[in-house]
Every structure is written in C-alpha cells, then in structure tokens.
C-alpha cells in the first residue's frame, strides 16, 4: 500500500458574501492514493471551483486538514503555496487559460520560469511531443483548435513533472472527438506514467473513464465508489 497522495480531513470552506455565510465545503474527508485516477462529480458550480481551489493549493480551508504527500498545506503562506503549485501540481483548465500573446512552446515553458527552470526549451518540446503537438510549437493559441489548445494546456501541466494532474472540467468546451483525445491522454498519463489524475467535473459522463468516482452534493461527499 502506497502512502496517500492527498488526504482531506474534515475540510470545511466557508465564504462570506456580505452578511451571509455560504458553506461551499462541509466536513469533506477524502483520501486519494498515488497513481489513482479519480473523477469528482460536483453538481453545483461554487462547490466545484472550491474543491478545485482547495485541492490545487490556490486556497486554504477554513477548518480541517489538507495533507499533500504528507505535508499539511492548510496553514501555509502564499509563497510556499506558490512553490507547491509549481512543483507538485499540474493544472488543466476548462477554458485552457493559455496566454494569447505567446506561442504554444512559450506557454508550455511558463511554469519553468518560476522555480527551477534549466533546459526550458528542451523540456517544453518534450512535453509538447508527449501530447502530439511537436509540429505546432510556433503557433499561438488562436491558431489552434480547441482540442489542440487543451493539449497545449496538458503539456504545460506536465512540463514540471508533477505528481498530480488536476483537471477542472477539461473537456467542457470540446467536441466529442477532441474529448476522446484528451481523455485518452489523461488515462495514458495515469496508467503508463503513474501520475495521479484528478478530474473535477459536473458531468457524470466523464466518470465513465475513471475507476473511482466521488460524488458531492451541497458541499458533502454523498457517494464514493471504485469500479473493480
């Protein structure tokens, strides 16, 4: 048994909107092992992005503990969180979040600018080849199709060789063929390269591609099943 990569213990996140307190997460306890591929299905929009922000170390829980590879990241400062995002987590966004001014290659190089960044060009090339876009390195995002843009996004998530790929609705803006391509790449990363892949989504269809499915409703975990 490998150690848990991600362990949430009674995590609660409360937002204050004016005088009203909104509980986006309530006592969520989830444990995700290394080399798992997990879909977290969250019905509400706010719950989904909160789950994504907490898991991705973009935000810290109001109460409860978040252990990432054994390290409690719940109480860390902004700069330490930035370091952890840089080293351990690769983000894949629904809207790709590529910088429109930069070429595909420069976009993939972005995480290498921060922290340890030698051999940037070669490492970015390798990551782009990995998603099958070696011939598109000089193109800007506007010159690429949606599927190609998302593959650039995945290459950017991979370039730092993180242990976790965190995908937020990665196929939400894609047609069915591109969706298949993207999901195939994510499955491949999990099975062949041993990356922990977490997909946060509100579409149950996506869950078909993963072995484990966690379902959340109103900020609580209501179902957690693993298909054997």
């Amino acid at each position: 048994m490998q150690p848990a990569t991600i362990e949430l213990k009674d995590v609660t996140k409360i937002y204050r909107m004016g005088n009203i307190e909104v509980g986006a997460l309530r006592d969520v306890s989830v444990s995700i092992e290394a080399v798992e591929m997990v879909a977290i299905i969250v019905a509400s929009y706010s719950g989904k992005s909160t789950m994504m922000n907490i898991l991705g170390c973009l935000d810290v829980p109001t109460s409860g503990e978040y252990l990432l590879e054994g390290e409690n990241v719940g109480q860390l400062g902004d700069d330490r969180l930035a370091e952890i995002r840089n080293r351990k987590i690769g983000f894949v966004f629904q809207t790709y979040n590529l910088l429109p001014r930069l070429t595909a290659l420069a976009n993939v190089e972005l995480p290498l600018l921060y922290g340890n960044g030698h051999n940037r060009r070669r490492r970015a090339m390798t990551a782009l080849s990995r998603v099958g876009l070696a011939d598109r390195v000089g193109h800007r995002p506007t010159e690429l199709s949606g599927g190609q843009q998302q593959r650039v996004g995945i290459a950017r998530a991979l370039v730092k060789e993180p242990s976790i790929v965190l995908a937020d609705e990665p196929t939400g803006n894609l047609d069915s063929q591109s969706t298949e391509e993207v999901m195939a790449i994510l499955q491949d990363l999990n099975q062949r390269e041993g990356l922990t892949v977490i997909i946060v989504t509100h579409e149950p269809d996506i869950a078909a591609a993963t072995r484990r499915v966690i379902t959340m409703l109103d900020g609580r975990v209501v179902d957690d099943r693993t298909v054997e």
């Binding site: 991705g56 930035a82 370091e83 080293r87 979040n97 995480p111 600018l113 921060y114």
Partner: peptide
C-alpha cells in the same frame, strides 16, 4: 492569475 497558478510568487 495564470502565472500565479503556475507557481509565480508575489515577488516574481
């Protein structure tokens, strides 16, 4: 926002 998500610190 993107740069910060990718690990840029305040100082960067």
């Amino acid at each position: 926002g993107i740069r910060k998500a990718m690990g840029a610190k305040r100082r960067d």
